[in-house]
Amino acid sequence: MENVVTKNEMEIVYKKPKTITDTPMHYCPGCGHGVVHKILMEVIDELGIQDQTIGIAPVGCAVFAYDYMNIDMQEAAHGRASAVATGVRRVLPDKYVFSYQGDGDLAAIGTGETIHTVNRGENILMLFINNGIYGMTGGQMAPTSLIGMKTTTSPYGRDAAQVGNPIKITELIAQLPGAYYVTRQAVHTTQAVRKLKKAIETSFKYQKEKKGTCFIEVVSNCPSGWKMTPVEANVWLEKNMFPVYPLGDIKSPK
């Protein structure tokens, strides 16, 4: 066994970003939130803006985001993260501000705040985690749930005639003049995560240049809410979520 190199002789090529705290995350196994937290903090580490970034935590599964991100954070009322982010950014115009919301937060109770924040073209980054379900409260139907999707409040599948179609909030806000960079990414594979990282980097760059609102939707999973294993959930996501929520830039600056 002469060829075996011990760990001491190797160099670290990847480790937990230093801006992520050591608190074990409360998320279910395989949850996309953890990946998004990690990538976001990685970008902040690489740009060296830990002391200049303010995050706004939502209500939802990511309500404890401030426990995991070692930056300045503020909790907002349900759905109002973008409104709070507006205030923070206006008072502290030199800081980087992001809001982090789920689909029940941003696309249901906070639709008004979301649309008007983007319409005003606030210089913030809005991260939108879309998993088509209310994960925190036990898997109820969200505005973004797919047609025919079985949830605890739509046990026979979502019926468009009764409760409407899945809302494509990202396409909706891309129409507004205040939106500068609108994109949809995912976290189910390594390639997707790398693309998301690039999108977050770009958004922070635009934010510094005060170009307008940057909006990143992340199509994520909810293994517990969908009642699948994490691996099955990622396969289901690719097969069912992507036809309705196709990945890619929806509005990018020319």
Binding site: Y14, C31, G34
Partner: peptide, 8 residues
């Protein structure tokens, strides 16, 4: 490591 949600 990139896909690990818990940065473990």
């Amino acid at each position: 490591a990139i896909v690990c949600p818990d940065s473990a």
